[in-house]
Simulated assay, not measured.
Amino acid sequence: MTEPIVDAAPAIDFDLKSLPKVSLHDHLDGGLRPATIIELAEAAGHTLPSTDPVALGQWFRESADSGSLVRYLETFDHTVAVMQTYDGLFRVAKEFVEDLADDGVVYGEVRWAPEQHLQNGLTLDEAVEAVQEGLEAGVEAVSETGREIQVGQLITAMRHAERGQEIAELAVRHRNKGAVGFDIAGAEDGFLPSRFKDAFTYLAQHNFPATVHAGEAAGLDSIQSALVDGRALRLGHGVRIAEDIMVEFDDDDEATVGLVTLGDLSSWVRDRGIALEICPSSNLQTGATAEFGEGIESHPLDMLYQLGFNVTINTDNRLMSGVTLTDEFNLLVETFDYDLDDLLELTLNAAEASFLPLEEKEALVEYINDAYANLG
């Protein structure tokens, strides 16, 4: 992890939106604007729970926070339904980039599963090309406002389906044309990365990087499989790695931590700097951190950060969780008393863990450091 160059960060007394951010875990079908969903749904003849943008946005947030997995998954039925054409994919991708830039993101990796967007006749390659053209249009629109942003696609395979090899080949086919990495997503529990072992081998043979959803809905076995079978360079969420950490408290004061012992798996993840793509608000919604407590105060991200894990902060699904990276940063400041030094380190962690080429990664790190150094 790169050390910040700022000696002492000033107090946080300004809008955190102005800070340059790096977004590594953000789903395209989880970040649509409610007004866009309504317009695209009308054109597609798709029925929505509401045709009022405010009410629809509220429905998505309440459904995702209902505690019902069925209702949570229903939210994606509506977003995916309006992303089945070139025009729909192009518009959603373009607006996604604009929304990232409005949040202060200067580099973002956008993950999505092309296999879910073929209902109206698009091929896998046509779907990827539509999204890429939308992303590039978004970058251009942001540039016209005097700002800069860089984005890349994380081509994702659904882990409960049978198209892993096909999607891996798709990702490699579009390298140097917008695709920067591979991912598997969907139902984690019961669908270990080992199901796609051959696909991950293919990616490794073609020197193409992978991040794997693991340690969210399933525990240590999923993380182990992601690292061994998936050759994951990053863990999508990965928060349940904390299950492999034993914390003993002082007998005289239960509030004082006495001894922290890392298991073999957690030691491996920490010592080799494998990035954790942690999504605080989403983790609470999905119950990924339920074992550690109910509220954000019980989220193990702070313990992982303090122990030296390569923690990065992300949104997961902006629409469903009703959050931005700025919101998540604010949440950390309010809950764990993080200061600008902490936010800088978390941002540099993400920049270092990105799937950018080394030269571009170094330039991104320098840009972020310079921005923080100029705050005072």
Rank of each mutant, 00 (worst) to 15 (best):
M1H: 05
A9D: 09
P10G: 08
A11S: 05
F14Q: 09
P20W: 01
I38Q: 02
E39S: 07
L48I: 01
P49R: 01
S50D: 06
D52K: 03
V70M: 10
V70D: 14
R71C: 03
Y72W: 11
V80Y: 01
V80A: 08
T85A: 09
V92P: 06
A93S: 12
F96P: 07
L100I: 00
D102P: 07
G104Y: 07
L124G: 07
D125G: 11
V128M: 10
V139R: 11
A141V: 04
T145K: 14
A157P: 10
A157C: 13
M158S: 13
H160D: 15
H174A: 13
N176W: 12
G181L: 14
D189A: 15
F191V: 13
T201P: 12
A210S: 14
H213Y: 03
E216C: 03
D221E: 09
A226T: 01
D229V: 01
A232D: 05
L233W: 04
R234D: 02
R234F: 01
G236K: 00
V239N: 06
E243Q: 12
D251S: 10
A255K: 08
L259A: 11
G263F: 00
W268Q: 08
R270L: 04
A275E: 02
C279R: 08
S281P: 09
S282D: 08
T286G: 15
A288W: 06
T289S: 15
F292A: 13
F292I: 11
I296Q: 13
P300L: 13
M303W: 15
G308T: 09
M320I: 14
N330T: 12
D337C: 10
L340H: 05
L340W: 02
D342F: 00
L346I: 07
S354Y: 03
L356Q: 02
L358Y: 05
E359N: 05
K361A: 00
A363C: 05
E366C: 00
G376W: 07
